[in-house]
């Protein structure tokens, strides 16, 4: 089998990547534009970066988003791991279909429905049991964890399915109690899945605007909510600068991850 791609395929690949990356690259280029009119080039400047870094509203929102993302990702990994273990290891437990269905619901449900239903639940809970008295940090964390749990569970389940179950049996056979098997064998073996799941959950939370719009209170504005409201009003050179920073950070992280994983692809 030859690995030389036909010309047509190369062109398709080239055009595809151009389509995916050109808008982002242009966005970054114009973040260095002096003019407020984003798309009219008047000269090189880094002033929008300066303005961005002095914009308290954006900085506060970014900080809040990072904390929400970290908390919800951690929660999602904890619950998603248990759910993934249940699906991969407990066979046909009672009501498995309902368990799997509820777990997968946020994967296929439009975000507006997930957001709406969580908000209506929080409102009703507040009426009935007095919690949550106000919506904000806690409700966003719960909502994002609910969204991400399904993704974590899928990743963990796939990882568990990929390794020899006899390894866990061998540990039990050598005298390890069920909890020891879980901590000493299962968890270390699915650790890469937990890391991947956490990062995915973190990104989903950091990226979400729809669900946060529903469940955030008036005082808690995450970064996507700030971007969304300013973009709705029109173009803003600060958003360009922010985009450039995000792309830079993500690229560096991706490069680091690729470097850390080098040689691990069998």
């Amino acid at each position: 089998m030859t690995h030389r791609l036909a010309g047509g395929l190369l062109i398709a690949l080239g055009l595809g990547y151009t389509f995916l990356y050109l808008p982002i690259l242009l966005l970054i280029v114009f973040s260095f534009n002096e003019s407020r009119l984003v798309t009219v080039w008047t000269g090189f400047s880094t002033k929008w970066y300066g303005e961005l870094l002095r914009n308290e509203r954006i900085l506060d929102a970014a900080w809040l988003s990072l904390i929400v993302a970290a908390c919800s990702a951690t929660l999602a990994v904890a619950i998603g791991t248990l759910a993934g273990v249940a699906l991969a290891r407990y066979g046909r437990f009672r009501l498995r279909w309902l368990f799997a269905g509820l777990l997968a619901a946020p994967l296929i449900m439009p975000e507006v429905i997930t957001g709406l239903s969580l908000l209506l639940m929080f409102v009703s809970m507040d009426q009935v049991v007095g919690w949550p008295a106000s919506r904000g940090f806690g409700t966003i964390v719960v909502a994002h964890a609910t969204l991400s749990t399904a993704f974590v569970a899928v990743i963990v389940q796939a990882r568990l399915a990929g390794f020899d179950r006899a390894v866990e049996e061998a540990a039990a056979d050598l005298g390890a109690r069920p909890a020891t098997v879980f901590w000493r064998i299962t968890l270390p073996l699915i650790a890469p899945a937990l890391v991947a799941g956490w990062l995915l959950a973190f990104t989903l939370s950091l990226d979400d605007v729809v669900i946060a719009s529903f469940v955030a209170g008036p005082g808690t504005t995450t970064l996507p909510l700030v971007i969304f409201s300013s973009v709705r009003l029109g173009l803003s050179p600060q958003v360009n600068a922010l985009a450039a920073i995000i792309v830079l950070v993500v690229s560096v992280l991706a490069a680091v991850a690729a470097w850390a994983n080098r040689g691990r692809f069998a």
């Binding site: 390794f163 020899d164 006899a166 390894v167 049996e169 061998a170 540990a171 056979d173 050598l174």
Partner: peptide, 11 residues
Amino acid sequence: NTVFQSYALFP
């Protein structure tokens, strides 16, 4: 104790 067919060594 058991020697498993796949050996099931802890990777």
